[in-house]
Design a protein around this nucleic acid. Structure first.
Lengths: 115, 115
DNA sequence: GACTAATATAGCCATATTCTAATATATGGC
DNA sequence: GCCATATATTAGAATATGGCTATATTAGTC
């Protein structure tokens, strides 16, 4: 028992987590910490193909992860809300705690080494 | 530029996020807040089939999300590390901020309504 | 060693992801 | 209206995921 997450929110949260659970998409969110970025900037900086960049951005847009402002033919994407930002902050914070040794995590270490 | 996440950690973190990005798995993590639980307890409490329960647990075990202690034929699973716990805490905290209205998130609301 | 309970695994099928290559759309300038 | 640039969309193939049913494994008991 003792469920803390509502059935409704579990659906939404798992959608968000899955959306962030792809290396390219997480990398895009990382890059967007810098502020709004155009598709072209994202593509060139992260060294992705144009369709892949656009597809991941549209996917994230459809899930409410990012939003955009259009000026001319250029689309400036940005992180859509505080929930996404908070998850990202949590990931960043965890990276630091693992790297600094504040958390000694055998299982994490094996993950960090793999591949 | 200004990338904060290392290439290595992006891989690990996206694995973790994807692993949590499934309603059943997130629900299991939610239930495990109570402490160690056996496969049978999880299965009955969350109203899942035996194979589905076992498969998701083994999947999460293979990703370092959960760990277990065996006693006899019973396996007691628990959350494997602080990273997973922190992500979960973040999700819980966000749920509260959204529900209380501290965050007004149009995009989230649409997600919360859907389906 | 047979029996039971608890869990894991295998095989199968339907569906979803993700990438590539090619094409379409839309905006602004001329 | 035509052109160039920026981005979106489509189609298709390869692979991954998720659930079901059935079966296997393992530990304890007698």
């Amino acid at each position: 028992m003792n469920e803390e997450l509502s059935v409704q929110f579990i659906k939404s949260a798992s959608l968000v987590l899955r959306a962030l659970g792809h290396p390219v998409r997480l990398k895009i969110i990382d890059y967007l910490q810098d502020g709004k970025k155009s598709v072209g900037e994202i593509q060139r900086t992260l060294n992705l193909s144009q369709p892949v960049t656009s597809q991941h951005l549209r996917y994230m847009y459809s899930k409410g992860i990012v939003d955009y402002l259009q000026s001319g033919t250029t689309y400036h994407y940005f992180i859509a809300n505080e929930f996404i930002q908070k998850i990202y902050d949590c990931v960043i914070d965890s990276q630091q705690k693992i790297q600094s040794g504040e958390w000694e995590m055998e299982s994490m270490r094996s993950m960090l080494m793999e591949d």
